[in-house]
Each structure stands twice: as C-alpha cells, then as structure tokens.
C-alpha cells in the first residue's frame, strides 16, 4: 500500500471517492452518516457546509480512521485504494491529511521532534529515503516563516500553550511539511479572528495545486471568501442534500440553512 512516487496525478482525476457511506457510533448505536456520496477530484476544492449535528466532523473522523465509528455500508477510496480498512497511519502515508478542529496538546513531545518523526515515518512507509536533519530543518524553517511561526513555537511541546490561531497555523504547517494528496480541513476557521483566518487561508492556498484535492468543512461562508471552493455541498442529517458552485455558500450566508433544507425536504 502507499501512494506511488513522483508526479502522475492529473487534474480532474478522482482523488477521493465516497459511495453510499453509512456510519454509526460504536457505543451508542446511533446512525450519523446515512448514505454519503461524494467525489473530490485532484486540483479541486470542495466545501461541505451544514448545520450543527449534520455529520460533517464525523465524516472527517471516519475518513482519517478515528476509533469509535462503525461503517455499516458503503465505501471510501483514495486514488482507488480502499482506505476504510487501513490504520490511521496507513491512510496518512497514502496521502490523507486531516487538519483537526481541535488540535491535540501533547506535553513533553517537541513540535520539531513530532514533525520530523511524522515526515520520516511517511517517507519510510512509502519506501522513500528519510529526510536528513539539515534538510528537514531547512524545509521547516522556510514553511514556518510563511505561516509566521517562530523558532520558539517549533521548539515548544506540540500545541501546548498555543493560542487558537497558533494551533491552526501549526496544523497547516504540518500539512505543508507532509504534502498530502487529500487535505481535509475540519472547521479550521473556528476560533480564528479575521487576520488569523487570512494567514491560515494563505497557507492553504499556497498548497493548492493540480495534484491535490481539498475537502473544506465549515459552518460559515466566511472562510470560503479566502479559500475559494470549486464545489459546495450542503450536508444535513447524514447526507449531502445539495451540491452547487460557490454561489451556494453565499446563499447559506444570506438565508441560513432553513430555506435550502425546506427545498430539498
């Protein structure tokens, strides 16, 4: 398993393909996703919007392999490979990245150590050579500078004592270093002021290229002013109920979800 090396991803090629995905909470026997169909192509930014409790975050967790969810039906593939049977680290090595809504604080583990371990673990899993300390340092300094992350922040334990904005920038830094094929951003705008959001959005936009797909999960249209989506989906009660262009996000911003949900009911 693992993604092929080198170039070869063409724009428009299917990156993520989700078919009829049904998911329950393992402990509560509660159905969360009730038949999600979604295809994200390489080079495209798809946004998922929807009210609280519609299943947006669950979708991101299920795709990244978090415990506690049971897939009862359907499939999800990344470049044609079934990811639902993979361990979280295998999904990461295959090119999937989740920017967490609530990045986890890990006292005692230095941010640099963490990132270097992650980068080299993925390289190893893909049969590539590990990055040397010098190479890594050079790379991370350049990436960190773009995101206005100072050397001090890199030395600190992962996310410990970071402000909300710093945590989100740290997620984007990880994304930049790991160079995933599919980036899932779970409410990356939550807890950010306008300036911080712009910084994060710039970081994301810098990573947009033809070989990479994005799935941006958000409540608000605001983030989508900065990360311009190609496709917008509305999720409600565990399903994608409407799909459209960027104008769909504006419609939500102006009228709320009620009109759209009534229309598709």
């Amino acid at each position: 398993m693992g993604r092929p090396c080198g170039p070869g991803n063409e724009k428009g090629k299917q990156m993520l393909e989700i078919k009829n995905l049904h998911v329950e909470l393992e402990e509560e026997d509660k159905k969360i996703l009730k038949g999600v169909d979604l295809t994200v192509e390489a080079g495209k930014v798809h946004a998922i919007m929807g009210p609280n409790g519609s299943g947006k975050s669950t979708l991101s967790y299920v795709l990244s392999g978090r415990d506690g969810y049971e897939v009862t039906e359907g499939s999800a593939t990344l470049e044609g490979n079934d990811i639902l049977d993979m361990e979280p680290e295998e999904r990461a090595a295959a090119g999937l990245f989740l920017a967490f809504q609530y990045p986890v604080e890990i006292p005692g583990v230095g941010n640099m150590t963490f990132l270097r371990t992650a980068v080299n673990a993925q390289r190893k899993a893909r049969g590539q050579e590990e990055m040397s300390a010098t190479e890594f340092l050079k790379e991370i300094r350049a990436r960190a500078k773009d995101l206005k992350i100072d050397a001090e922040m890199l030395k600190r334990p992962v996310n410990v004592g970071f402000s909300g904005g710093e945590k989100k920038r740290n997620e984007i830094l990880q994304m930049a270093m790991l160079e995933p094929k599919l980036c899932i951003l779970d409410e990356t705008d939550s807890g950010l002021d306008v300036d911080a959001m712009k910084l994060v959005a710039d970081g994301v936009n810098a990573l947009r290229d033809e070989g990479r797909g994005f799935l941006v999960i958000t409540h608000y249209q605001r983030l989508l002013n900065h990360i311009k989506p190609d496709v917008v989906h509305i999720m409600s009660d565990g399903r994608i109920v409407k799909t459209g262009g960027p104008e769909l996000a504006l419609e939500v911003e102006n009228n709320g979800y009620a009109d759209i949900l009534a229309e598709v009911a």
Binding site: E89, R91, L98, V104
Partner: peptide, 8 residues
C-alpha cells in the same frame, strides 16, 4: 490518534 493521523 493525533500522532497516528500524521503517519506515525
């Protein structure tokens, strides 16, 4: 999970 999601 956070560490594993990063490929470790």
């Amino acid at each position: 999970f956070y560490l594993r999601s990063r490929g470790i």
